[in-house]
């Protein structure tokens, strides 16, 4: 009897240990159920041949500044109007706080600390106040964006370039006309999916000189195919290939593409028919 009871207790204890370890491992590995395994749809990209994970986003830039907030605060299409309004106010407040803090950073340490504490408290209140509003607005914005994207996708094959208002919203006028060159590195890396043949969306901009105002021309939003090893692997068909003025074009039906080097690597970009 004693032996039996001891065996049971020992077995229970051993089970507890095993369960504790395996549960921990399972959590660590993401096998805890419910969550993981959502493949595809990299960064808003729709899967074309199974898709992959997005390598893009704010952190991929590795920059000391980010345009993540500025896009929202400075406009970017009619669908972003409500968000822009709200974030603009936040930006103004932040700017005021920033000025105070900046001044503080250049003065004494004690004064700095006091200012930061004030600034921090104010910011926290403002963040809490705007957070719920922003969440509602983001949801609206998101729904509107989905509709816009669907419309744009439908219209894309008929017209080029696609209409403005596509995701991500284009930068506002003057966005790149920053004479003091601050935040020159705040571009977010386009969400191009890992692996071949995923359709993503990035904004294509006309290139220009750093200080040239022409570079503010309205960006053409494009659909981009990540480059596969073989030329045809990332395109929706086995293309006809043309070389025009030294540039290789790939034709799928009425759509034309060319390869280009983007922030995420070599990609296929839709272009107007070369002839």
């Amino acid at each position: 009897m004693n032996i039996k009871l001891n065996s049971i207790v020992t077995a229970m204890a051993a089970s507890f240990v095993i369960l504790a370890v395996t549960a921990d491992d399972a959590t660590a590995r993401g096998f805890g159920g419910g969550g993981g395994g959502a493949r595809g749809g990299g960064g808003g990209a729709s899967s074309f041949q199974g898709g992959g994970f997005s390598r893009g986003g704010a952190a991929a830039s590795g920059s000391f500044s980010s345009g993540a907030a500025r896009y929202g605060s400075e406009g970017g299409g009619s669908s972003a109007a409500s968000v822009a309004s709200s974030r603009s106010q936040t930006a103004q407040t932040a700017s005021t706080n920033r000025a105070a803090t900046q001044q503080g950073w250049q003065s004494t340490s004690t004064a700095n600390q006091a200012q930061r504490q004030d600034s921090s408290a104010e910011n926290q209140q403002q963040r809490q106040a705007t957070s719920s509003q922003n969440q509602d607005q983001r949801q609206n914005y998101s729904n509107q964006n989905v509709q816009t994207r669907q419309q744009t996708a439908q219209q894309y094959h008929g017209t080029y370039p696609p209409h403005a208002g596509y995701y991500p919203p284009p930068p506002p006028a003057g966005y790149y006309n920053n004479n003091n060159n601050n935040n020159w590195d705040d571009g977010e890396v386009a969400a191009v999916a890992v692996g071949s043949a995923a359709i993503g969306a990035v904004a294509g901009y006309a290139a220009g000189q750093s200080n040239a105002s022409e570079s503010q021309s309205a960006p053409a939003t494009t659909v981009v195919y990540t480059a596969p090893p073989p030329a045809s692997g990332g395109l929706p068909c086995t293309p006809n290939t043309s070389v025009v003025n030294g540039v290789t074009y790939y034709q799928c039906g009425t759509s034309w593409y060319t390869q280009a080097y983007g922030s995420g690597g070599v990609i296929y970009m839709p272009v107007p028919a070369p002839y």
């Binding site: 370039p161 990035v202 294509g204 901009y205 006309a206 290139a207 960006p219 053409a220 494009t222 981009v224 025009v244 003025n245 540039v247 290789t248 074009y249 060319t258 390869q259 280009a260 080097y261 983007g262 922030s263 070599v266 990609i267 970009m269 272009v271 107007p272 028919a273 070369p274 002839y275």
Partner: peptide, 17 residues
């Protein structure tokens, strides 16, 4: 190949023979 940012500016020029 072109830089992606330059594609929108080279494409019209490429409309040639």
């Amino acid at each position: 190949i072109a830089f992606a940012a330059q594609v929108t500016s080279i494409a019209p020029a490429a409309i040639a023979t």
